[in-house]
């Protein structure tokens, strides 16, 4: 509570600025390159400016827009499914004791311990049989392997702190099950859902290996394009692509720090009250 009232001292400011410069500093050229035509070593800024890279991105032949769209659709679907499955699974793990819980926990953790490549080979064979390989749906399904455990584990943390008596208290004061969910349960677990969902989105958005293996090069996503153009040595184009690739991470970083700072994070699961 007191943290908000504390004024940052000059020393704090020096540290803050140091961190910001060292993190964002290396990114500055990244934001200049997409607008440069020629930019050589000793010059601080490019000698010739151009938006050629952006024109190329907007051109359907480059497949960039298609890839962005695919990445977006896949990541959104993966996020939604992860939330829908991860929240109840996390609740079960966080709140209830049941027979074989240890085993279930192990299974949920397994995908994050076992190398994805090993699992995906086996899955690929099955997906070919099912006609899911080389399809968007197949890619969505395989992205769930790392995201569902992530979502489940982060929700089980929230639910372990969550006191179901709050729901009972609301019921006993006259709230229906429906109202109880929206007024009591949801606000308590919402910070957890948002964080989990954002990271699920990022995991899917940045996924290369699983997409290549299951999508078979036919489902083009942004990381795939990035890799295939990495060798092209076209700095302007690569930097433009990187910016698009970084954008969700930056938005999410900004959003999480706002959303999860201060009071709201302490309210996750009503843990500290």
């Amino acid at each position: 509570m007191d943290i908000e009232d504390t004024k940052a001292s000059p020393l704090h400011w020096i540290v803050y600025i140091g961190v910001i410069v060292s993190v964002l500093g290396p990114l500055i050229p990244q934001f200049i390159w997409p607008f440069a035509k020629s930019w050589f070593f000793p010059d601080l800024l490019p000698s010739v400016w151009s938006v050629r890279a952006w024109e190329y991105i907007a051109n359907p032949n480059s497949q960039v827009l298609e890839a962005v769209w695919n990445s977006l659709v896949i990541a959104v679907l993966v996020t939604c499914i992860s939330v829908l499955l991860g929240v109840p699974a996390g609740k079960a793990l966080g709140m209830y004791r049941f027979r074989g819980k240890g085993l279930v926990e192990l299974f949920i953790l397994a995908p994050s311990i076992i190398p994805g490549l090993a699992v995906t080979m086996g899955i690929h064979v099955v997906f070919i049989r099912l006609g899911l390989s080389d399809t968007l749906l197949g890619v969505v399904l395989v992205h769930l392997i790392p995201t569902i455990p992530y979502m489940t584990i982060s929700m089980s943390g929230i639910f372990a702190n969550y006191d179901p008596d709050f729901e009972e208290q609301a019921r006993s004061l006259g709230a229906s099950t429906f109202k109880t969910f929206f007024i009591i349960t949801l606000p308590a677990i919402f910070p957890g859902i948002v964080t989990g969902a954002m990271f699920a989105f990022l995991i899917s958005w940045g996924q290369y290996l699983l997409t290549v293996l299951i999508g078979g090069g036919r489902v083009i996503t942004l990381p795939l394009l990035l890799f295939s153009f990495a060798a092209s040595r076209d700095n302007a184009f690569m930097s433009a692509l990187s910016i698009i690739f970084l954008l969700p991470a930056i938005i999410i970083l900004f959003f999480t720090s706002k959303f999860l700072s201060g009071k709201s994070s302490s309210m996750g699961g009503f843990g500290t009250i």
């Binding site: 709050f166 009972e168 208290q169 006993s172 709230a175 009591i184 606000p187």
Partner: peptide, 27 residues
């Protein structure tokens, strides 16, 4: 429970954390 007109007061109070005192009481 919401139709019984029976209210339970818990050992650990369970005040809803994001509501102030008046909002809690008026729930």
């Amino acid at each position: 429970p919401e139709r019984r007109e029976v209210v339970m007061v818990y050992q650990n109070y369970l005040l809803f954390p994001y509501m102030n005192v008046a909002e809690n009481v008026g729930f």
